[in-house]
Design a protein around this nucleic acid. Structure first.
Length: 288
DNA sequence: AGGGCAACCTGGGGGC
DNA sequence: TGCCCCCAGGTTGCCC
């Protein structure tokens, strides 16, 4: 499942293949892929044709293409989305949703998505806090790898949340790019249980978990992006499988790499959380 | 206002 | 073998 590192791998991979190229034709093969583009598929296609791709940018898990007309194509991979650069003669992928052909007749850009949680849309650009982003991304916070990410300020906001720390880490309006996998990894690194109340963390703990998230992401990025879902494939069609195994996520029953205790899996928001029962003790019941 | 949570999807896997 | 149910999970939108 693509989180920030996977999306960055896709961004940097796609960038080399599409910048400076003019869109000649767009084919929407599944309407759900452009459902976020409210004016509809025909509008999406019509406005995209003839524009040139100027840049490929990212914030958190969102990716967008700056266009020569001043707008942008926003892409979100959802849980199974892929952006592939493929020669036109390559047969369509089973779950191909959108195809972008270029005027130079070179490789196409293809959006492939089995579970259809992802999608593309067109948006105007707007400046938010000194950075230009698509209007539909204006509410998304800077991610931990953003050069302008403010650890101290985000830690203060984190400590003001009356919720559990893992919930807060997954809130893209507080800090973006962190999904279920990297949240568990960051919490493991700083020995905090995900149900710890955010407003009971010390300033050092709050800064620590955010810094840990950035470090986990940097490690994953160096390894080419984590993914153990065969659905995730990078821009060249190669699996981004992380050769270095994770410390917490998916390791139920396996020994903690710090203390050896078997990790446990707990249900959380209809999904799974993995943690070390010894290093990351659950908070005692708290009186407020 | 802000937190919590159902709904949106598909395919793989387990149980029977 | 086949059917059914569960599971994975990011974001939105709605409820409280």
């Amino acid at each position: 499942m693509p989180e920030l590192p996977e999306v960055e791998v896709v961004r940097s991979g796609v960038e080399q293949h599409v910048i400076g190229r003019t869109v000649a034709a767009v084919e929407v093969l599944h309407p759900r892929a452009v459902r976020r583009h409210v004016p509809g598929a025909a509008d999406f296609t019509g406005r995209l044709v003839g524009t040139k791709i100027m840049a490929v940018r990212r914030r958190g898990k969102y990716l967008w293409f700056d266009l020569s007309d001043g707008d942008a194509v926003l892409a979100h991979l959802g849980m199974s989305g892929q952006l592939l650069v493929q020669p036109p003669e390559v047969p369509d992928e089973r779950h191909l949703r959108v195809r972008v052909r270029f005027a130079d007749a070179g490789p196409e850009l293809r959006f492939v998505d089995q579970r259809t949680f992802g999608g593309l849309s067109l948006a105007e650009l707007v400046e938010v806090d000194g950075t230009v982003v698509p209007t539909t991304v204006a509410h998304i916070a800077r991610d931990p790898m953003d050069p302008l990410f403010d650890v101290a300020a985000t830690a203060r906001r984190l400590r003001s949340r009356r919720t559990e720390v893992k919930r807060a880490l997954l809130d893209q309006t507080l800090v973006s790019g962190i999904g279920n996998i990297y949240a568990d990894e960051a919490l493991w690194r700083v020995k905090l249980h995900g149900t710890r109340p955010a407003d009971r963390l010390t300033a050092a703990q709050a800064r620590g978990v955010l810094t840990a998230a950035a470090e986990v992401m940097a490690d994953a990025l160096r390894a080419g992006g984590t993914s153990f879902d065969a659905l995730y494939v990078n821009v060249n069609g190669e699996s981004g499988y992380f050769s270095r195994s994770l410390d917490a996520y998916g390791r139920e029953g396996e020994p903690c790499r710090r203390c050896g205790a078997p990790l446990v899996r707990e249900s959380f928001m209809n999904r799974s959380s993995f943690s070390c029962p010894s290093c990351q003790p659950k908070p005692r019941a708290l009186r407020r």
